[in-house]
Amino acid sequence: MAETVAAQAKKEPIISIKGLTKVFTLGKEKVYALNGIDLDVQENEIICLLGTSGSGKSTLLNMMAGLEKPTKGSITIFGERVDKMSERKLAIFRQKNMGFVFQAYNLLPNLNAIDNVSLPLAFAGVKKRIRVKKAKKMLKLCGLGKRMKHKPTQMSGGQQQRVGIARAFVATPKIVFADEPTGNLDTHTTIEIMEMMVRMSRENHQTLIIVTHDTEIAAYADTIYHIIDGRICSVEDNREHQALPPEGHIGDLAADEPEVGSEAGEPELEMPAAEAESSPQEEEIGRILQNSQIPNTLSTEE
């Protein structure tokens, strides 16, 4: 384990944040939502931004996603300055590289689960037949095989969030952002959801950035950044004590969909990345990744 950490530390970070400051001016008062943040995120890393309410976590995450412009400092993702990108370019950049899981799920109310999940693929110009197939597969992986035609209002919060996760991961983005993904859920569901996200990002070698105020959720991350008043006050390497999803839970999670559940099963749990590649499901996701990248590159016309 220690070796892997050392090896990863040497690699180029995929996200590099330098001196990030965000000042909101409310009348005469200046609010320093962020105050000089420096942060590097490695490929395949799961990080957590942990802090109390109002500490600036969401602001930081939104800025990484290009939804907000910093007052000072820079954000570089895959070598590109996100803070300098135009709206148009950002849309394409997000389409190609980012997935989002929201606290309020933010599913489109008039679309059923399949259509919600296939949305990012539709935006990327994937054909209907293909994207529906992928969405169905993704929903099965998330244990929603029997809820595919349901609209958001016909599902529980936990189910909606699983749809949200399926949507965030379906296009296999390199980075998935999750702002308080379990904020509206009970403890049991929280565990299910967290394990699912961690499992998926591990399987796909994705970088997961979780925002939370809950230390139990932070426990799923490789690295925990403690944020207080817009500053990173400490960085904690959590690999040693990481909360790994125990076998039993995955079974529960996928109980909805037995065949997939058994397929999705055990081998991934230990998660040595190299080993995971041989699993049939891994291959499937890899194929999804490859397929969906063809239209992605095509759609970069500008």
Binding site: R88, A91, K96, G99, L108, L119, F123, S299
Partner: peptide, 14 residues
């Protein structure tokens, strides 16, 4: 809200 969501998850402006 819907339009915002679509934008966040990568819908192009055009």
């Amino acid at each position: 809200r819907e339009i915002g969501i679509m934008k966040v998850i990568g819908c192009k402006l055009k």
